[in-house]
Simulated scan of single mutants.
Amino acid sequence: MLADKDLEMFLLLCLLLLVTADPVSAQTPINITVSVGSTAVLPCDLSRESSALSSSESPHVQWRISSGVVFETHPEKPHQGEGYEGRVDVPEDQLRNGDCCLFLNNVTTEDEGEYECYLLENQTDSSLPSKRVFQQRVNLVVKKSEINSSARRDSSTVPDVYVFVKKSQTESSGLNLTCLATGFYPKDLKMRLRRFTTSLPDHLLTSSGVRPNGDGTYQLRKSVDVQEEDTAGYDCSVEHSALQDPVIKPWDGTYSGSSGDNRWIIGGVVVGLLLLVSIVIGIIVCKRRKSKSPSQSPPAGGEGTPLSPVPPQPVVNGSCVRNKTDEDTEMVEEDQQEEE
C-alpha cells in the first residue's frame, strides 16, 4: 500500500494531466513531402461552423511551428516569421472562401517539421489578446531534389500528388476529399477524382485552377464533398508529360478528424482520469479516518494482555489459607503486648 504522501503526489500528477490535456495532440497530422527548392502547399480549411466565414472581413489566420510564428494575415501587411521572409503567403482570394493553405516557396531542409494552422478570434474584452482556435496540423517532409531550380524551366518535373480529407464546409454530415498536385512543369496536367475508376463530373468538383509556385513550377487542387457513410472506392488520378504512367492515389476511406471530432476520445480520457482521482481520494480519506479513530483496549485476560501473576495459596487440611501479611503481623504483636 502506498504511503499518504505517495498517494497525494499521485493525485497531484493526475490533476496536472487534466489541466494540461491538449486536444491538439489528439489530431492526426497531414503528411506532405516535397523536394528541396520546390513549393510546398500546406492544406488548411476552416470548419464550416466557423463564424469567420460569415464575416465581411477575411479570416485572421496564423501558421506556427514550435519555435514561433511562420505567417499571420493582417489587413495592412501580413507578418512573415524569421527565416520565412518573402517565401510564405496565404492568398487573399482563397482566404475569403475559408481556404487557409500556406504556400511555402523555395523549400529548404531547415523547413522540415510540423506546422499548425490557427484561426485568431477577437475576444469580447478588447484588452485581451486574440483567442487561437486550432484548425489543422501538417507534417512537412523535405527530400533532396535531383534537379536544380535553374533547370526546371528547361525540363519536365514530376508532380507530387497528395490526397487528404477534412470535414465538409457545406454538408453537416459530409467530408471534403481533396487531391493536390504540386511541383510540376510544364503547367499542363490532367487531374481526375474518381470513384470505382469512374471520373466524377466537373459540376461536383471544386478546382483551384493551375497556379504558379515561386520556383517556376505549378500546382493544382481539386476537391469533392462525400458522405461519411459512403467513402469506398475513391481515388485521384494525375497525368503529366513527365510521367510514364498516371499517378493514382487511392483514399482508404479513413478520416483522422479535426480537434473537435476527437472530443469523444478526449472526453473518455478526462472521465478516466477523474475516476482514478476519485478512487485515490477515497483511499486517502479512508486511511486518515482509520488512523484517527481511538484504539479499543482488549478485555482483561484477552489475547495479547499478560495477567499479573497470582501467588499460590497454601493449603491446610484441604482449605485454602491466605498468606500472612504485614497487617496480620501487627495484630499479633498488639495481642502479645496486651497479655503482658
Rank of each mutant, 00 (worst) to 15 (best):
L2I: 07
A3K: 13
D4W: 00
L11N: 02
L12Q: 04
C14R: 12
L15T: 01
L16I: 04
L16G: 13
L17M: 04
L17F: 03
L17T: 01
V19M: 02
A21M: 08
D22Q: 05
Q27T: 04
T28L: 00
T28P: 00
I30T: 14
I32T: 13
V34A: 07
V34P: 04
S35E: 12
S38T: 10
T39L: 04
C44R: 00
L53Q: 05
S56P: 03
E57N: 15
E72Y: 06
T73L: 09
T73E: 14
T73D: 14
T73A: 13
E76I: 15
K77W: 03
P78D: 10
H79Y: 15
Q80W: 04
G83H: 02
Y84P: 12
Y84R: 15
E92Y: 06
G98P: 13
C101D: 08
F103Y: 09
N105W: 01
D111Q: 10
D111P: 05
E112Y: 03
E116M: 13
Y118M: 02
T124Q: 12
K131D: 15
F134W: 00
F134N: 00
R137A: 13
V141M: 03
V141R: 02
V142Q: 05
K143P: 03
E146R: 07
N148P: 09
N148F: 06
S149C: 07
S150K: 09
R153P: 01
S155L: 12
T157W: 08
V158K: 11
P159I: 01
Y162M: 13
F164W: 11
T170P: 00
T170G: 01
E171C: 03
S172A: 12
S173F: 06
G174T: 08
L177M: 10
T178K: 09
C179A: 10
F184W: 07
Y185S: 14
D188Y: 01
L193E: 03
H203N: 09
T206S: 14
V210F: 10
V210N: 12
P212A: 14
P212R: 04
N213C: 13
G216Q: 07
K222A: 13
K222F: 08
K222S: 12
D225L: 09
D225F: 02
D225T: 11
D230E: 02
T231A: 11
T231I: 05
Y234E: 06
C236T: 05
C236F: 02
E239A: 08
E239I: 14
H240T: 06
A242D: 09
P246Q: 14
P250L: 08
P250G: 09
P250S: 11
T254H: 00
S256H: 03
G260F: 01
R263H: 06
W264F: 04
V269W: 02
V269E: 05
V270K: 11
L275M: 08
L276I: 11
V277S: 11
V280D: 10
V285S: 05
C286V: 08
K287P: 05
R288W: 05
S295C: 07
S295Q: 09
S295D: 06
G301F: 14
V310C: 00
P312T: 07
V316Q: 06
C320W: 09
V321K: 03
E327F: 15
D328F: 02
D328R: 01
E330T: 01
M331Q: 13
E334V: 03
E338A: 03
